[in-house]
Write a protein that binds this DNA or RNA. Structure first.
Length: 237
DNA sequence: AATCGCAACAACCGCAGGGAC
DNA sequence: GGTCCCTGCGGTTGTTGCGAT
């Protein structure tokens, strides 16, 4: 029988107090991140490790960027969501200082509605033809009536009506890349990475200090990379 | 001034992946 | 190879703040 992640008795839940925050900050500043399960006891916190980790990652980390999302960030989230779906950690990984929780919340509370108001299905980023066709938003291109992203993979697929296998030909990929106008360079992990607690996902390779802020112009979608690295992206064909 | 409804955000929960034993 | 443990992720819920009535 597997033990629960934390004892239900004796652990605090709900909002964190300033005192708890300070304890967590002090401990991590001294000992570094990791070993979340044993951290609460060592730090003198009556919280489960999960809760500590979440609090640190989503709120206390010094590199957290607080405040409203800029238009460029909004744009980037929408574009990345079209590519990656609800992979919030991956999306947040390309937005320096933003957390997956923050991006997820922002999507659910703002961007989702924004797309719906534009007559765009936030799930597949396709225009809902039964709704209004006022596409005056900055994220919408007049030349592409199918998708909020200019020449996105979705748009490409919708134009080709059940397109054949995504990686079927280099020529096809080249054409797509030209159509997409959305670049997403995927860097790979440093082999000499010291952090043995890091996530090994191919898009989570870069540490915050290595992340370059990307905007839509800098992103590079290599179709080969996309389709071979992220099987779930096949969904967006 | 009170209260109601909604939006925003913080936090929790369950699950899955991966490493260690 | 199987099991356990730790960690991270994504969905969901709870709480708080604010505007409308």
């Amino acid at each position: 029988m597997r033990k629960p992640c934390c004892d239900k008795d004796g652990t605090n839940k709900g909002a964190w107090s300033k005192h708890e925050d300070q304890k967590l900050i002090d401990y991590i500043t001294t000992h570094g991140e990791g070993c979340w399960r044993s951290l609460p006891k060592a730090a003198g916190l009556h919280r489960c490790g999960k809760s500590c980790r979440l609090r640190w990652i989503n709120y206390l980390r010094p590199d957290i960027k607080r405040g409203n999302f800029g238009e460029d960030e909004e744009d980037l989230i929408i574009k990345l969501h079209a590519l990656l779906g609800n992979r919030w950690s991956l999306i947040a990984g390309r937005l320096p200082g933003r957390t997956d929780n923050e991006v997820k919340n922002y999507w659910n509370s703002h961007l989702r509605k924004k797309l719906i108001n534009l007559g765009i299905d936030p799930n597949n980023h396709k225009v809902n033809r039964s709704q209004n066709h006022d596409h005056s938003a900055t994220t919408t291109h007049p030349h592409n009536s199918h998708n909020i992203i200019s020449g996105s993979i979705n748009a490409h697929a919708s134009n080709s009506d059940e397109t054949s296998a995504a990686a079927s030909s280099d020529n096809n990929n080249h054409n797509r890349k030209q159509l997409i106008n959305l670049d997403l360079t995927i860097a790979f992990p440093y082999s000499d990475h010291n952090d043995h607690h890091h996530d090994h996902h191919p898009l989570k390779e870069t540490e915050p200090q290595n992340k370059e802020p990307l905007n839509s112009m800098e992103m590079e979608v290599s179709s080969n990379n996309i389709y071979t690295t992220f099987p779930t992206l096949i969904l967006f064909r």
